[in-house]
Simulated assay, not measured.
Amino acid sequence: MTTDLVALDIGGTHARFAKATIGNDGAIALDEPITLRTSDYASLNTAWEDFARRSAQPVPRNAAIAIAGPVTGETVRMTNNSWVLHPSRLDDQLGLDEVTLINDFGAVAHAAARADASDFLHLAGPDRPLPETGTISVIGPGTGLGVAQFHRFADGTYHVQATEGGHIDFAPLDGIDDAILARLRARHRRVSVERVVSGPGIVDIHAALAALEGRPVPDLADKAIWQAGLEGGDALAVAAIDRFCLALGSVAGDLALAHGARAVVIAGGLGYRIRDTLVASGFAGRFRFKGRYEQMMAAMPVKLITHPQPGLFGAAAAFAREHLT
């Protein structure tokens, strides 16, 4: 007997909904997702109602909800949008029988744990599959910086641990990093790695590089900088993306050390968009640059997950672990 549910992946900018089916063998199939902008809706309830109107089929009475924020207590506040969720009331509010609520990068870690080897691209370190046992860090720059980890056991099972690792302190490694930190510190009480290693973080990287060269600080949105840098026509934007890749390498290495990881998975649409730049940049060098542990870091594979909807797939996997095993 199969189980149908709605998988939701709610980030700072978009909420993605898709019907998911879990087979008797645990295999997960996703329908084509419907993507809504969170800023267009007052709450999850109103977005759910719009999804139900758009859906061509009856909406299942089960749901797996991945959200960008810590899943604790009776009130869950989203990290990068204004929605507030009340976990104990979700089943009544949305008319559901069973609900799984999970941190969005906890869901991505479920996806990384379950994905086929063909769903990964090699970025750095030895070109071999993810290890069958041990801890694997999962890191994804997007609207914010998502961080999770999962541990694989010898019996083939795994355990996911969601974290708020994107909010650790930013640690500069050279003079340019110092300039980026100084710019951010002038406007924020505290500078986390998410201020630098996220899609919007490119704005301050770009502006700091302009100031270092004595140029006027351009007033550009993050999307414009990413586009100009990836197209290669704007040297300053190209340099900003290269610096972003360095920072991501440093942070990924720090988190791998903190997690005791044996491998790292980079996730998210932004990571996929800059995949070629990551390979050609100083990402791998910064990842390895950990003093006495440089040799250990060099032996660690770093992969990019290419599954088209890891948050939705992982949310459904988390539902299966909670309700079907």
Rank of each mutant, 00 (worst) to 15 (best):
H323N: 13
N24I: 10
A258R: 05
D127V: 06
R53D: 15
Y41D: 06
A235D: 15
A221I: 07
E49C: 00
G199V: 05
L101N: 11
T75W: 00
E132N: 11
A315L: 10
C245V: 00
A115R: 00
S198H: 03
I139S: 05
G232P: 10
T72D: 15
Q161W: 02
A115G: 10
L236G: 08
D4H: 12
A47I: 11
I28D: 03
L246H: 06
P131T: 04
G253E: 06
L181H: 13
D254C: 00
G142C: 14
E294G: 03
I28N: 05
A52C: 13
G165K: 06
V302T: 12
G12C: 07
A237I: 03
A18H: 02
T163C: 02
T100D: 09
I202N: 09
G314W: 00
L130C: 06
A299V: 03
I136C: 03
I10W: 03
R37A: 15
G314N: 05
I102V: 15
A299D: 15
A42Y: 00
P218W: 01
G156T: 09
A239E: 15
R288A: 15
L246T: 02
H122M: 08
L90G: 03
P60S: 09
A113K: 00
T135P: 08
I176G: 02
I136N: 02
M296E: 14
P218F: 06
D119N: 14
R16Y: 06
R16M: 12
F319R: 07
M1I: 05
V147H: 09
G146M: 10
F105P: 01
P126R: 05
F51Y: 15
R77L: 06
F283N: 10
E164G: 12
A228F: 01
C245E: 09
L130F: 01
P216S: 10
A263F: 04
L5A: 12
G156A: 08
T46K: 00
A316F: 06
H159F: 01
T3C: 07
V191K: 01
I225R: 00
G142T: 10
L36M: 11
E98P: 02
R195A: 13
T35A: 04
I176S: 08
A224V: 10
D97A: 11
R189S: 14
I305T: 08
I139T: 12
M300W: 02
V138L: 09
G314K: 01
L181M: 03
T157P: 03
A107G: 13
A113H: 06
A42T: 12
F120G: 12
R189G: 15
I180N: 10
R286P: 02
L255S: 00
T46Q: 07
D155I: 08
N24P: 11
L8G: 04
G291S: 10
D254V: 00
R275A: 14
R187L: 11
W48S: 05
E231P: 06
R54K: 15
G165R: 02
